[in-house]
Amino acid sequence: MTGAVTAEHEHDTHEEKTLGFWLYLMSDAIIFALLFMTYVVMVNNTAGGPAGRELFDVGHVFAETMVLLASSITFGFASVALVSKSKAGVLAWLIITFLLGFSFVAMEIIEFLGMIAQDAGPGRSGFLSAFFTLVGTHGLHVSLGLVWIVVMLAQVAVKGLTAPVGSRLMRLGLFWHFLDIIWIGIFSVVYLPGVL
């Protein structure tokens, strides 16, 4: 009887944490909505400096997009491995996801450094300030996601695929896929109109 009560309490605790995490994601969505709105308002405020069509490299951004979307697929495979209780599979797919996410962040840093080298840093104009803030905030979130992946790799390796570890992995999956959705928005609202 005590085991059943403990299992029920543990299940309720995981559901409460999942609800709390959904609330966090909604607040994060509001932050990104505000950043998107700021960008849309500031996009034409170039202060005589370069606009998106002079700065954005669609090929580079498309490669970034493919890398991030691939990381979402590999995280999906990690989730499938979690359901089938394959510790080795979870670890392998999380490592691949980490490498893809790290590649995305490195590509974003290269893009930023290239823009700054062209005297197109965030202090140049309202447009660039809004661009760096929006895209940089997304990059910061991906970087935090990479730290979270490292933590989960350690937990899976040490604790195995316990219910709490599985619950944390599922929340990480929500976060990771959320970032992919935000990036699709950035690609569609910032980069594509910027080069047209």
Rank of each mutant, 00 (worst) to 15 (best):
V80L: 15
V80K: 15
V80C: 08
L82M: 15
L82G: 01
V83H: 09
V83E: 12
S84M: 11
K85L: 06
K85S: 11
K85F: 03
K87Y: 01
K87S: 03
K87V: 07
K87I: 03
A88K: 05
A88S: 12
G89N: 09
V90N: 01
A92M: 02
W93N: 11
W93T: 00
L94I: 00
F98E: 11
F98A: 06
L99I: 13
L100F: 15
S103L: 12
F104I: 10
V105K: 11
E108W: 03
E108M: 11
I109S: 03
I109L: 10
I110K: 15
E111K: 15
E111C: 11
E111G: 09
E111M: 12
F112I: 05
L113I: 10
M115I: 04
A117E: 11
Q118W: 08
Q118L: 15
A120T: 05
P122I: 07
P122T: 08
P122F: 13
G123E: 11
G123H: 07
G123P: 06
R124M: 11
R124E: 08
G126E: 02
F127H: 03
F127I: 00
L128C: 06
S129M: 14
S129I: 04
S129Y: 06
A130M: 09
F131S: 03
T133G: 06
T133I: 14
L134P: 12
V135R: 12
G136W: 04
